[in-house]
Deep mutational scan, measured.
Amino acid sequence: HDVTIHAGDKTIHVHGASEEFLRIIEQAKRDGIHEEELLRLIEELVK
C-alpha cells in the first residue's frame, strides 16, 4: 500500500505500508492521538 498521511503541516508518504501499519494509524486517529505523537509513531514504524 502507498499511504499519504497528513499530520498538521506535514505530509508523510509511506510506500509499501503493511496492513498492520494501516490499522495502527487508523486506530491512532480514532483514539484522537495528537498529530505530533502520530508523527513519532509513524517514524518508529517506518525505520
Results as ranks from 00 to 15, higher is better:
Ile5Gly: 03
Asp31Pro: 01
Ala28Tyr: 14
Val3Trp: 02
His13Ser: 08
Val3Leu: 12
Lys29Ala: 10
His34Val: 13
Gly16Asn: 13
Phe21Thr: 08
Gly16Gln: 09
Val14Asp: 01
Thr11Phe: 08
His13Thr: 14
Ser18His: 05
Asp31Gln: 12
Leu45Tyr: 15
Gly16Thr: 06
Arg30Thr: 09
Lys29Gly: 06
His1Phe: 15
Ile42Val: 12
Thr4Lys: 05
His34Ile: 12
Arg23Trp: 11
His1Asp: 07
Glu26His: 08
Leu45Thr: 02
Ile12Glu: 01
Arg40Gly: 03
His15Arg: 07
Ile12His: 03
Arg23Val: 05
Asp9Gly: 13
Arg30Phe: 11
Val14Lys: 01
Arg30Met: 12
His15Lys: 08
His1Pro: 09
Ile25Arg: 00
His13Met: 09
Asp31Val: 06
Asp31Tyr: 09
Glu19Pro: 12
Asp2Arg: 13
Glu37Leu: 12
Ile33Val: 12
Ser18Ala: 05
Val46Trp: 11
Val46Lys: 05
Leu41Ala: 01
Leu38Lys: 00
His13Glu: 08
Glu35Lys: 10
Glu43Thr: 11
Leu41Ser: 00
Asp2Phe: 15
Glu26Ala: 12
Glu37Lys: 08
Glu20Cys: 03
Arg30Ser: 11
Ile24Ser: 05
Ile33Cys: 03
Leu22Val: 12
Asp2Val: 15
Arg30Cys: 02
Asp9Phe: 03
His34Asp: 14
Glu36Arg: 12
Arg23Lys: 11
His34Ala: 15
Glu43Pro: 00
Ala17Trp: 11
Thr4Pro: 03
Glu19Tyr: 10
Asp9Pro: 05
Leu38Asp: 00
Gln27Arg: 11
Phe21Asn: 02
His6Gly: 06
Ala28Leu: 13
Gly32Gln: 05
Gln27Cys: 04
Leu38Arg: 00
Glu44Trp: 15
Thr11Gln: 09
Ile33Ala: 11
Glu35Tyr: 14
Arg40Glu: 06
Asp9Ile: 04
Leu45Cys: 03
Ile24Cys: 03
His34Leu: 14
Arg23Leu: 11
Gly8Asn: 05
Thr4Gln: 07
Thr11Ser: 08
Ile12Asp: 01
Glu35Thr: 14
Ala7Gly: 05
Ile5Lys: 01
His1Asn: 12
Lys47Met: 13
Thr11Tyr: 07
Glu20Thr: 08
Leu45Arg: 01
Thr11Lys: 06
Glu43Asp: 11
Glu37Phe: 12
Phe21Tyr: 03
Leu38Tyr: 03
Glu20Asp: 12
Glu37Pro: 04
Phe21Ile: 11
Glu44Asp: 11
Leu22Asp: 02
Gly8Lys: 01
Lys29Trp: 12
Ser18Glu: 03
Lys10Gly: 05
Asp9Trp: 01
Ile42Leu: 09
Ile33Asn: 02
Glu43Gly: 08
Val46Ile: 15
Leu39Glu: 04
Glu19Gly: 08
His13Val: 15
Val46Tyr: 10
Arg40Asn: 06
His6Ile: 15
Glu36Trp: 15
Asp2His: 13
His13Gly: 02
Leu45Met: 13
Arg40Ser: 07
Gln27Tyr: 05
Lys47Ala: 13
Asp31Cys: 08
Lys10Val: 12
Thr4Glu: 11
Phe21Arg: 01
Phe21Trp: 13
Gln27Asn: 09
Val46His: 06
His34Arg: 12
His1Arg: 13
Val46Ala: 10
Glu43Asn: 11
Ala17Thr: 05
Leu38Gln: 00
His15Ala: 10
Leu41Arg: 03
His13Leu: 10
Ile33Lys: 07
Ile5Cys: 02
Gly8Val: 04
Lys29Pro: 00
Ile42Cys: 01
Ser18Tyr: 05
Gly16His: 10
Glu44Thr: 11
Ile25Leu: 12
Ala7Phe: 15
Gly32Arg: 04
Phe21Lys: 01
Glu20His: 09
His6Asn: 11
Leu22Thr: 06
Glu26Ile: 08
Glu20Ile: 08
Glu44Lys: 10
Ile12Val: 11
Arg30His: 11
Val3Pro: 02
Ile33Pro: 01
Leu22Phe: 10
Lys47Pro: 06
Ala17Phe: 13
Glu43His: 11
Gly8Pro: 03
Glu37Ala: 15
Glu20Gln: 09
Ile12Ala: 03
Gly16Phe: 11
Gly32Pro: 01
Leu45Lys: 01
Ala7Asn: 06
His13Trp: 03
Leu38Val: 03
Val14Gln: 01
His34Met: 14
Lys29Thr: 10
Thr4Trp: 04
Glu37Met: 11
His13Arg: 06
Val46Phe: 13
Ser18Pro: 07
Lys47His: 12
Glu35Leu: 14
Gly32Thr: 02
Arg30Trp: 11
Lys29Gln: 15
Ile24Glu: 03
Glu37Arg: 09
Glu35Pro: 15
Leu41Ile: 07
Glu26Trp: 10
Ala7Met: 14
Val46Thr: 10
Glu26Arg: 10
Thr11Gly: 05
Val46Gly: 07
Leu22Ile: 14
Ile12Tyr: 09
Ile25Gln: 00
Glu26Phe: 09
Glu26Cys: 13
Ile25Phe: 09
Ile5Val: 08
Leu41Lys: 01
Leu45Asn: 02
Val14Ala: 02
Lys10Pro: 02
Val46Gln: 08
Phe21Cys: 03
Thr11Leu: 13
Glu35Met: 13
Ala28Trp: 15
Ile5Thr: 01
Thr11Trp: 07
Asp2Trp: 15
Ile42Gly: 00
Glu26Tyr: 09
Ile25Asp: 00
Leu45Gln: 03
Val3Tyr: 07
Glu19Ala: 13
Ala7Tyr: 15
Ala28Arg: 04
Leu41Pro: 00
Ala7Lys: 02
Leu39Lys: 04
Ile25Pro: 00
Ala17Glu: 02
Gly32His: 05
Glu19Leu: 14
Glu37His: 08
Arg30Val: 08
Ala17Met: 14
Gly32Phe: 04
Asp2Ser: 13
His15Phe: 07
His15Tyr: 05
Ile33Gly: 02
Lys10Thr: 12
Glu43Val: 12
Arg40Met: 08
Ile24Gly: 01
Glu44Val: 06
Glu26Lys: 07
Leu41Thr: 01
Val14Cys: 02
Leu45Trp: 15
Glu19Thr: 10
Glu37Tyr: 11
Arg40Val: 05
Arg23His: 07
Val3Ile: 15
Asp2Met: 15
Ile24Pro: 00
Asp2Cys: 15
Arg30Pro: 00
Ile5Met: 02
Phe21Asp: 03
Arg40Thr: 07
Ile12Cys: 03
His15Trp: 07
Lys29His: 10
Glu44Arg: 11
Thr11His: 15
Glu44Phe: 14
Glu44Asn: 10
Gly8Arg: 00
Leu41Asp: 00
His15Gln: 12
His15Thr: 11
Glu44Pro: 01
Asp9His: 07
Glu43Tyr: 15
Ala28Lys: 04
Ala17Lys: 01
